[in-house]
Design a protein around this nucleic acid. Structure first.
Lengths: 145, 145
DNA sequence: CACTCTATGCAACTTGGTTGCATTAATGGG
DNA sequence: CCCATTAATGCAACCAAGTTGCATAGAGTG
């Protein structure tokens, strides 16, 4: 296995209260090398020959997300995609997220959100052509409070 | 079957270039009576005793959406939810959508989007408590243009 | 009324994801 | 350094959502 920086990966796991195991190291290695969010099957393909059990992968991604090492986004075709929380362009807060979905290659990029403003501002990312927008507010509806 | 307004439903189908069939009338009847977007299984449950084949329901919803009688939103658990395009609070344009997701009852409401502004504005809906926001921009990434 | 073409229903299948359980391995204490 | 404890792994079996192919039924047109 070609690990970019084994001790860095090990530290990342430990910092997030995760036991260091082979499966987790493999998955984390794939995630740190990707600028875009990846699905279960993306990761499986990138582990070609190094595959881990599919259930283990699901549970690994679940554990990463629970411990806030990663976060998940639903893709266009409604699978979960996972991306590290530590990429520099990642929003600091947990509750406001913005993503850019390329309608051609379907990659999903994380965008920064400026939450200082009253109404959060999403700066249009340079070199990205935006053709449509989706907004989704979460909270409680009148029936539930 | 208790149809709210059979000839109205029939007209709606015809206006959208859809043949009037029993299955479509049933599904449309369910959709016009719902202020929130519904999933395949929501609709199946509301057709209790009147059920149509699941494949037919998928194809009916597909046809409705293709003919712009409905539009679809991905739910929290990543199923497709369908809602009529004709509710008054529905955005006029096809490419900017906003929804409110209740984290308690998980209903999904359509919100109007003011696209007159440079940066689209989503007015906070009255009586809804917003705790987090998700934004998703669609278009072309630098790799693809 | 008959013809045509679309919509329907059924069976079989694919993909994403989960559960239960037995086995294996990581870590902390002695 | 080893052992015990507890958590992670792998496997099989399962579930739900959604799709495909095909034969049949039913709308709509002339």
């Amino acid at each position: 296995m070609i690990m970019k920086n084994e001790s860095y990966l090990r530290e990342l796991l430990q910092e997030h209260g995760l036991k260091v195991t082979l499966a987790r190291m493999k998955v984390l290695d794939v995630l740190v090398s990707s600028p875009v969010a990846l699905s279960h099957s993306d990761i499986t393909h990138r582990l070609e020959g190094q595959e881990i059990d599919k259930v283990t992968l699901y549970r690994t991604l679940g554990a990463f997300t629970e411990k806030k090492l990663t976060h998940k986004v639903a893709s266009k075709d409604r699978n979960w995609l996972y991306a590290l929380h530590i990429h520099e362009n990642e929003p600091a807060v947990d509750h406001d997220h913005a993503h850019f979905v390329c309608d051609s290659c379907e990659k999903i990029y994380c965008l920064p959100v400026n939450t200082e403003e009253q109404t959060p501002v999403i700066p249009t990312p340079v070199n990205f052509i935006v053709t449509s927008r989706e907004y989704r507010l979460h909270g409680m509806c009148p029936d539930c409070h």
